[in-house]
Every structure is written in structure tokens, then in C-alpha cells.
Nucleic acid binder design. Structure first.
Lengths: 182, 182
DNA sequence: TCTATATATGTAAAAATTGACATATTCGGC
DNA sequence: GCCGAATATGTCAATTTTTACATATATAGA
């Protein structure tokens, strides 16, 4: 999956691994994340497979050499083929916190309650972070080609993230109320 | 993570890999899933690590030998230690469908619309499935030790799954309306 | 100028997960 | 009694993701 995210962002212009890491952290983080180690190694592999081209930017002399990646035609074709594939089933949803709740029946009530309250706190923080996101300047500073349409879709996925967090917080409230009655 | 789910279910009584696969499919599937291949191999590893004990049930003569796993004290301790660990950050949320939407800005509007409508259909089906779940007979047929409290927690996670699907469907509706205006 | 911190770029091993292959048994219907 | 489908159990290779290790530059402040 990460491959398609990288291809997707490279549509808008050439970027380095670090650029991609930053962009992912500030945009897809509510539905996908990746460590820099995976981003760098995936880019190498994509380069070897011809999906992207790279060139080392040595302009600065002494500076750290930055490897700038550009989307190739093959890469663009791969992305479009993937987007065009009809999806037949929903991807599985995984949530480690829910596993913990599921098996909390034998745990101490107060321990569960403080875990739930902490979770609520963390989800509230996350929701607050989403409110500070601005899809308009997501790719700011890059020689990119982003349309109104693109940023509209981005905003809608961000909205999804917000609604997810809102639902989660509400569920945690219900959960806390219920555990208190036990 | 799968390890803790297996330990969790084995708390309630001995089970085979297949039993565990079935139980997972009908209970944790809205927040975790696993293929049988992973379940069998993880059980082997847990056996080697002493978290579970296994014995082959040859009672039926000709029958396929079923390997029945039982939780050991070490396994119980491992599970309880994990449940007791304070969580400091939220697990990442991943959703491949959202990646597709995010990069749909350059796609044909009608193609996007039919994908969104299909997704809505799939989520509606999933929600309908959840309504047929009965946490009470989740472990039916097993010599298990399930308390009222356990099934209460199970019901609450199922409720979370339903609220998630409801939120998702509502978002898809908004999304469809918005794409239609483009 | 030293120094701590953030920025930036990678490699490599380990663990988790997925997907493909393989096979034996049970059960219901014909 | 045969056959197809569902049940049941596994292995193995490939891929993906995580975690740990490593290192170099830039920048801001003491």
C-alpha cells in the first residue's frame, strides 16, 4: 500500500524521501502511516522497478546529498491501474485498543476506567490536531500541480478522520459510563 | 497482536486452531482479523515459547488429529502483563479505501461515484451482519468460563463496530453528494 | 565556540501478515 | 456408493511493517 501513496504524492511533483515522510505525517496520518525507514526502502525498490526515477542533488557542495524522486510513466500507469481496479471487499479494520477492551472483563474496574479516560484524552488531542490541518498548504514549497479538485478530496478524507474521532470519543464516553455502573 | 487475542480466548477454555479461527471471525472481526495460516503458525510458536500447551486428540481413531491448545500459567501471566501495560499512544488507523479516495481527484467522476456506492453497499452489509451477532453464544459448545462481565465488554466492542459502520455510511453519503456536485 | 536539538538519510534484522499451495475428513444429496 | 461442498489442518515463500542501529548536517542558544 505504501507504494501507491508514494506514487500518489509524486504525481504532484518531485520529492525526496523526507518530503514524503512529512507530507504523509500531515495528511494521510489518519488513514495510513509509515516510518521513514519504510519510506526510504520502498522508494529504492520502486526506483529499481522503474516506477520512479531518482537523482542525487549535490548542488550544495558539502551538504548531505538529497535523493529526489520523480514519477515515471510506468509509475503513473501503475497508480492509475490500481485506482481503476474495482474493489470487491472492504479492507479489514484493525484496532489494538479494541482488543484490550475486549479482554478487559477480568480486569480491575479502576484500571480499565483510567485506561479509557486516557484513550479519550488521546482521541481528543488527535481531533484537535486535525482541526489545525490545512489541506491548502499541504504541499506548500513544492513545485506542484494540485487542483481544486484534489484538495477537495483531501478535505473530505480529513473530514472522515474527524468524524471517526468524534464517534470514538462518544463511544468512549458511553463505555466509561457503563464501566462505572459495574 | 494476534498472540494476545489467542491468549485471550484460551482464558475461557481449551481450543483448537480452527475453533479460534471461527471465534475470531465472529467476534473480533470488526477490530482484528487473521488468516488461518497465521493462527496455526502463531499457536506453534506460542507452544514452543511455553505460553500454551497442546495435546493431540486422537480419540476418534481414523479421524484427523486435532491439536487442542490450553493456556499455561506463563501464557496467562503474559496476557495479564500486556493488559496491565499503560498505553501511551494511540495505535495507527489504516484504511486502504481512504487512500483510494485521497488520490481520486484526477479520476473520472462516474468511476469514483460507483466505487463510493459500492463501498456504501459493502458497509451496509457489514453493519447488517453485526446486527445478527450474538455475543451470548460466542463460545457456545466450549467448556468455557465466561462471566456476565466478559460478555458485557464484548457487546460494547460490537457496539463500537456498529457505530463505526454507521459513521462510515453517513460519510459515504456526504461524499457521494459532494462528488455529484463536481 | 560549544552543544544540544531538530533535521535529514539511510541500513538491516526481526516480526507480523498475506497469499499460495497442499491435503484429509465429514456430510448431505443423488 | 459416489461426488461435491464444507470442514479442518497445516506448510512455505513473499511481502509488509516494525524496531533498532547508525550517521551527518543545520540551527539556535548558552
Amino acid at each position: 500500500m505504501l507504494k501507491y501513496i508514494l506514487l500518489g504524492f509524486l504525481q504532484y511533483g518531485p520529492m525526496t524521501g523526507y518530503d514524503l515522510k512529512r507530507v504523509i505525517d500531515f495528511s494521510t496520518m489518519h488513514f495510513w502511516h509509515a516510518y521513514h525507514s519504510q519510506i526510504y526502502s520502498t522508494l529504492r525498490k520502486m526506483d529499481a522497478d522503474g516506477l520512479v526515477a531518482s537523482e542525487t542533488d549535490d548542488s550544495g557542495g558539502d551538504k548531505l546529498s538529497r535523493r529526489v524522486y520523480t514519477l515515471t510513466e510506468a509509475g503513473e500507469a501503475t497508480l492509475n491501474a490500481w485506482l481503476g481496479e474495482p474493489m470487491t471487499e472492504l479492507p479489514a479494520h484493525k484496532d489494538e485498543s479494541m482488543v484490550r477492551v475486549f479482554f478487559s472483563g477480568r480486569r480491575d474496574k479502576d484500571a480499565v476506567l483510567s485506561e479509557l479516560r486516557l484513550q479519550r484524552e488521546l482521541h481528543q488531542q488527535r481531533l484537535a490536531t486535525y482541526h489545525t490541518f490545512d489541506v491548502e498548504d499541504l504541499l506548500e514549497g513544492h513545485p506542484v500541480d494540485v487542483s481544486q479538485q484534489d484538495s477537495g478530496y483531501w478535505a473530505m478524507t480529513l473530514r472522515h478522520g474527524m468524524e471517526y474521532e468524534t464517534m470514538y470519543i462518544r463511544w468512549l464516553e458511553e463505555m466509561i459510563d457503563w464501566v462505572e455502573t459495574l
